[in-house]
Amino acid sequence: MSEVLLAANGISKNFGGVRALANVSLTIGKGEIYGLIGPNGAGKTTFFNVLTGLYTADAGSVTLSGRALNLGQPHEVVRAGIARTFQNIRLFANMTALENVMVGRHTKSRAGVWGAVTASRATRAEEAAIVARAHTLLKYVGIDARANDLARNLPYGDQRRLEIARALATEPGLLALDEPAAGMNASETAALRELIAGLRSDGITILLIEHDVKLVMGLCDRVAVLDYGEKIAEATPEAVQRDPRVIEAYLGGPVE
């Protein structure tokens, strides 16, 4: 592993007495595709939500490029450089695809009320740059032709792509994808795989939660496995697949 980008230390989270995460630590190297897998209810999405600030952790800390993240404040996490997508797509359904991506530029632009009302030269320049950047990103994920369609009217696969484009608009150091292949057919998944591989070669580090084991094993450099809120393995895909604890977690009950 090269330089460490993200380090989570001892993250724990309970929901009213139910343990969702117990002392989970992991490190993600710069430029990696890091997979997070585990049976249903293992705590993957909870970990995601803690990492991206939607939940506050009961214990533990996260650093990004050595700097501590202010967990529990999603907008600060985004500013620090982590962007995410959602398992069940959350787009601004009644905004156009272009506008969705433009919203993603929020942290990278600064026009306030005064600038907007006076339409100062700086604001106009910034606005033009936002539009240009949004188009670039839509092209990057391959849906620029539908820039002016409402997000709700896009086909499923394009909605996933749009969500990725919106996340990329925040210029993240780490892109966290929550089951991006969920509900996709084989050809859509193949295209997604290409997109993710392309992102990596463009220097973006990726944290991937996924059920599609083939996708994870084919793409990821390293994989961590969660079970009942605990990390039970962290290794290369090949090693993880042979790990007896992982097999046990997936098949349920010790193999005797």
Binding site: F15, G16, T45, N49, L54, Y55, F86
Partner: peptide, 8 residues
């Protein structure tokens, strides 16, 4: 009442 977290 019980505290209900907004689901993500």
């Amino acid at each position: 009442g019980e505290k209900v977290a907004e689901r993500a």
